[in-house]
Design a protein around this nucleic acid. Structure first.
Length: 506
RNA sequence: GCGCCUCUAGCUCAAUUUGGCAGAGCAACGGACUCUUAAUCCGCAGGUUCCGGGUUCAAGUCCCGGGGGGCGCACCA
């Protein structure tokens, strides 16, 4: 829907009376000490029989989500992040009973009282005292339907978190996923580090960066598009098992699967190669599923995904043959692969080499068909400037992408360790940039100097945390796993309107 | 960036095949009610139908332009 005008007439009219009430009648507490969460109370007294009074007094706080005043008696539902519990108020027992009945949905209150189960069987706190902690001057949407408008849900996530069941659970799950990965990697001897977000030149991936300006140095800097090069410099420095979970930024369009800032795990292991990385992928993805969801077979968008290791391993060439029905190989040469691409309706630029052509064919015909999980192995060197040449297949590198539900979940390779080879690859990238590839890499001399100190054989991987959480949470849109996804700013709307209506821009 | 869909009260949704007084439920506001479970009942109020033009006696509805969002394509993880 359209953006939300504020303050809207409805809001003003609805709440002027309540502002009076708050100012004149009710103090807002500074502090409230709870003995337990609302949901914790519900769980620990679940055994109470109908009509039974526990004799135990608790103090708990949260938002009022339902209110059913009924004359000399009132029921309400208090909810906090542990769950919910019914409140049971009596005119004869509850202080300021009339005001308690006037509370609005969404108001925060703290209550103390005995835990009882009502005659109708609902576990409740019998309110012996209560305190207003904050007023909700805006509504929380329909109490049955919540708020379904995605624009409101994403722009006002704080409202969405209360109004729609399950939203908060996704973010609690996300937190647990990241905690679980940290724990697993820590147990495997990996050290977590933090490398710069502001890069003098963007590197480690093929992507367009965001540019910003560093005043003190009178120079432009780039928001990182990957953590890769700094992390491998850590390995050169002797941090043999290193990882970072951090935000990376890519200056590209929004989609249900892309946000310009996203969270990536990158990990590097000295003395390892890409086969070690496959094992780590399986351990993280299946292990975390087992730990948090209780199973390695998870439902996703109406189908099951079996994450149980070991995952299928197949080469890019094999999978293209399976799904596109064509035999391809780098040895066929550029012209032949162009003809194959044309016959499949795959568009390409004239400067694409055989490797880029092969990758395009894969991405247009095969990738989305792979339900997986499957490790797609052995990419053309041409499209993998940081990966080490395959030990037995000329023209290819030791690289794989794990594909689940038709999507790349990450990327991994046996790292290129030879500084001369790396320099040549960077220079090749610069030639491609000159030909029109604005995502091609540029020569990173700091990185080359590091390689000249000696990088041992190293396996590395990247894993998109947002996409992993999407799988676990069974959601199709990345915005569902980002608390505050990128949206067009509302502030631009009035400006856009005046521009559209013919007023000159300033 | 391109294509398709969509936008009506604070929220969820109605409004007859190009058109004929813009409605309901919930929330809010006033009242009744001593065991409710989306409580119920009575009353009251609530609108720039996303914005700007146009066609028409008459536009939420039809046409043009713009904006937000969703989905798809493209690019990427």
């Amino acid at each position: 829907m359209a953006h939300l005008a504020w303050p809207s007439p409805g809001i003003r009219a609805q709440h002027s009376a309540r502002r009076e009430w708050e100012r004149d009648v009710r103090e807002i507490g500074y502090r409230f000490e709870t003995t337990s969460g609302a949901g914790d109370v519900a769980r620990s007294f679940a055994h109470l029989a109908t009509g039974e009074e526990s004799g135990v007094t608790v103090a708990t706080a949260g938002r009022l989500m339902l209110s059913r005043p009924q004359g000399r008696i009132a029921f309400a539902e208090l909810r906090d992040w542990t769950g919910g519990i019914q409140l049971f108020a009596l005119a004869a027992l509850t202080p300021d009973f009339e005001e308690f009945c006037r509370l609005s949905l969404g108001d925060w209150i703290g209550v103390t009282g005995e835990v009882v189960r009502t005659r109708r069987g609902e576990l409740s706190v019998k309110v012996a005292s209560w305190e207003l902690l904050a007023q909700a001057r805006r509504g929380f949407g329909d109490k049955w339907h919540g708020v379904s408008d995605p624009d409101i849900r994403y722009r006002q996530r704080e409202l969405d978190l209360w109004a729609n069941d399950g939203v908060r659970d996704i973010f609690l799950l996300r937190s647990k996923v990241i905690a679980s990965i940290r724990r697993r990697l820590g147990a495997a001897g990996f050290v977590e580090v933090e490398t710069p977000v502001l890069h003098p030149i963007p590197g480690g991936a093929a992507a367009r960066p965001f540019v910003t300006h560093y005043n003190a140095l009178h120079t432009d800097v780039y928001l990182r598009i990957a953590t890769e090069l700094y992390l491998k410099r850590c390995v050169v420095g002797g941090i043999e098992r290193v990882f970072e979970i951090g935000r990376t930024f890519r200056n590209e369009g929004l989609s249900p699967r892309h946000n310009p800032e996203f969270t990536m795990l990158e990990l590097y292991q000295a003395y390892g190669d890409y086969t070690d990385m496959m094992q780590i992928f399986e351990d993280i993805v299946a292990g975390t599923a087992e730990e948090l969801l209780g199973t390695t077979v998870i439902p996703y968008q109406g189908r099951d995904i079996d994450l149980t290791p070991p995952w299928r391993r197949a080469t890019l060439v094999e999978l293209i043959a399976e799904h596109a029905g064509v035999e391809v190989d780098l040895s066929m040469g550029k012209e032949h692969l162009q003809r194959v691409a044309s016959s499949l309706g795959v568009p390409f630029e004239p400067w694409y080499g055989p490797g880029k052509l092969m990758l395009e064919i894969y991405e247009k015909t095969t990738e989305a068909e792979l339900w997986g999980p499957v490790f797609v192995c052995d990419y053309p060197q041409e499209v993998s400037p940081l990966a080490r040449a395959h030990r037995s297949k000329p023209g290819y590198v030791e690289r794989f992408e794990p594909i689940v539900a038709g999507r790349e979940l990450g990327n991994a390779f046996s790292e290129l360790t030879d500084p001369d080879d790396q320099r040549a690859r960077f220079e090749e990238q610069e030639r491609e940039r000159a030909l029109g590839d604005d995502e091609a890499m540029v020569v990173d001399r700091d990185y080359l100097r590091a390689l000249e100190l000696g990088l041992p054989p190293t396996g590395g991987l990247g894993l998109g945390i947002d996409r992993l959480v999407m799988l676990y949470a069974d959601v199709a849109n990345i915005k569902e796993v980002l608390l505050f996804p990128a949206l067009r700013p509302e502030d631009n709307l009035s400006e856009a309107r005046s521009t559209a209506s013919g007023e000159p821009e300033t």
